[in-house]
Design a protein around this nucleic acid. Structure first.
Lengths: 244, 244
DNA sequence: GGAATGGCAAGTGTATGCACTTTGTGCACG
DNA sequence: CGTGCACAAAGTGCATACACTTGCCATTCC
C-alpha cells in the first residue's frame, strides 16, 4: 500500500530545509541505515516493493541517492534488485534460509572458540556479569528486554574473537537473518532454553575450553534456527500489512 | 599517473554507439565486474585513486553509474570511500590482513569439512581427477596455469559444502584477499608444497573424514597466509606501476 | 472466440547541471 | 621566518530531465 504519511522521524525531526544541517554522513548513508533498520526490525516484510520515487518522497531526496542506497542494500543482501524491474525486500527460499542459519552457526562457533582463547580478563568478566544479570529477565518473562540482551550477548562473542573480519562476517550474516527470527522468543519456554544454552557457552569461555565453547555456540544457533523456522514457513502473505 | 589510453576492451570491443546493444546487464554491473577484475588481478594497486570523472571517461558513461558502481564496490570491501573525498582501492592494515586470512582459513576449513560430508560421488571424483592432473603443472613449473587450477580447486571446495551462503562468504573473502596473494606461487618451492597440502585435503574428503579435511584446509590457508605476507609487507609504493 | 500486436502508463537507467565540501596555494600579519 | 586566513580549483553530493524498458490493456486479425 506504500503508506504516504511523511514519517521522516528516522532521518530528521523537522520539516525545515534539509540541506546544510545533515547530521551524520551523507543522505545515502542515512537512508541505508534507516531502510535496513526497517527491514531488520520487520517493519518492512520480505517481498515488499521498494519503489524509488516513493522512497525519494519519503526521505525528501531525489531518486539519485535512493538508487545508491538501494544498490548498497542489495550488496548487503537485504534487498533484491532485478534490472529494470525495481527492488524488493529480499525474499529467501527455505534452502537459502537453512544455508544462512548453518553459516551463522559455524560463524558463532568460530567466534566462541576464539573468544575462549583470546578474550581478555575484563571481557570474560563483563560477559559473565551480563549473562548472570539476564537471568532476571528470564525469570520475569521480559521477552523484549531479553531480546536486547541477547543481541548484546552475541555481539560480545563476535568482538571477543578479536578479528575484525570475522566480526564483519558474523554481524552481516546476523543482519540478513534478523527478519526471520524476530519472534523466536515468543515460543513457549524459549527464553529459559536460550539462557541455559548461553550458560554453557559462557562457562566454556571462562574455562578457556575452546572446543566446548565452539560446540555450545553452534548448538545454540542450530536450536534458534529450528525455533525460527516455524515463523519463516508460516503462511505470511507479507505484502500489505505494514507492521505487526 | 591515471593512464589515459582508452583501453575499453573490457567493456566493449568497438567504439560504436554504446546504447541499445549493451551485452550483459546494466552499465553499472559491467563496470563493477570490470573494476573489480582490475583490482583483484592487481592491475590497480591498493591506495590507487578512483576518480569519478576519469572512470566515467574511461568507460564512456556519465558519473551517475560510476558512483553506483563505486558504492557497490565499497560494499564488497574492494574500495574505500570517504565522504566528499573520493574513493581509493581498499588499503588494509596488516592487522586487518591477518584477520582476513584467519577468516579465510576458518571458512575453508568449514567448506572442506562439509565437502567431506556432503560431496556427491561425482564431485569427489572430479576433485580427485583435477587434483591429480595438476601434478603435471607442478612438475613443469607452470606457475600461471597452476594458479588457475588452484583457484578452481578452492572453488570446488566452496561449492562442495552445498551451502549457498557459505559459498558466498568464502568467495567474497577470497576476492578481498586476492590483491594480496597474487605472487605467492613465485616463492621457491611453493608449488610443490601447495600441491601436497591439497593432497591431504583431497584424501580426507575422499575418505569422508570431515575433521581431517577441515584441519588440512585450515593449515593450507595458514601457510598461504605466511607466503603472501612477504609481498604484502614489501615496500611497494603501489602508485605508478601498472602491472608486474 | 482466442491469440497476437500496438500503444499507453509506470518506473528504471543514464546524462547533465549546480551546490557544497575539501584541499592546496599565495598573501598578509605577527 | 613561521602562522593563519582567504580565495581558487578540483571533485563529490544531489537534483532534475530525458531515454529506454517492462507490463498491461485494448484493439485487431485470424
Amino acid at each position: 500500500m506504500t503508506l504516504e504519511r511523511p514519517d521522516l522521524s528516522e532521518v530528521e525531526a523537522e520539516p525545515r530545509r534539509r540541506r546544510k544541517l545533515v547530521r551524520a554522513g551523507t543522505m545515502v548513508d542515512q537512508m541505508v541505515r534507516a531502510i535496513s533498520d526497517r527491514i531488520v526490525t520487520g517493519i518492512m516484510r520480505p517481498g515488499e516493493k521498494l519503489d524509488e520515487v516513493s522512497l525519494a518522497n519519503r526521505y525528501d531526496v531525489s531518486r539519485t541517492p535512493v538508487r545508491e542506497a538501494l544498490r548498497q542494500l542489495a550488496a548487503m543482501g537485504l534487498v533484491d534488485r532485478r534490472p529494470n524491474r525495481g527492488a524488493i525486500v529480499a525474499v529467501v527460499k527455505p534452502d537459502d534460509l537453512a544455508s544462512m542459519f548453518e553459516s551463522m552457526a559455524e560463524l558463532e562457533a568460530i567466534c566462541a572458540r576464539f573468544s575462549a582463547q583470546r578474550m581478555t580478563a575484563q571481557e570474560r568478566r563483563a560477559l559473565e556479569i551480563e549473562h548472570r544479570a539476564a537471568a532476571q529477565l528470564v525469570a520475569q518473562r521480559q521477552e523484549a528486554d531479553y531480546e536486547l540482551f541477547n543481541s548484546d550477548f552475541h555481539t560480545r562473542l563476535y568482538r571477543g574473537a578479536h578479528s575484525a573480519h570475522i566480526y564483519e562476517l558474523a554481524t552481516s550474516t546476523r543482519s540478513r537473518l534478523a527478519p526471520f527470527r524476530r519472534a523466536q522468543f515468543r515460543l513457549e519456554g524459549r527464553l529459559e532454553k536460550s539462557w541455559k544454552e548461553h550458560d554453557l557457552i559462557v562457562d566454556a569461555i571462562i574455562r578457556g575450553d575452546a572446543q566446548a565453547a565452539g560446540d555450545a555456540a553452534r548448538n545454540h544457533v542450530a536450536l534458534v534456527s529450528v525455533a525460527s523456522a516455524v515463523f519463516a514457513t508460516e503462511p505470511g502473505d507479507a505484502e500489505t500489512s505494514v507492521d505487526g
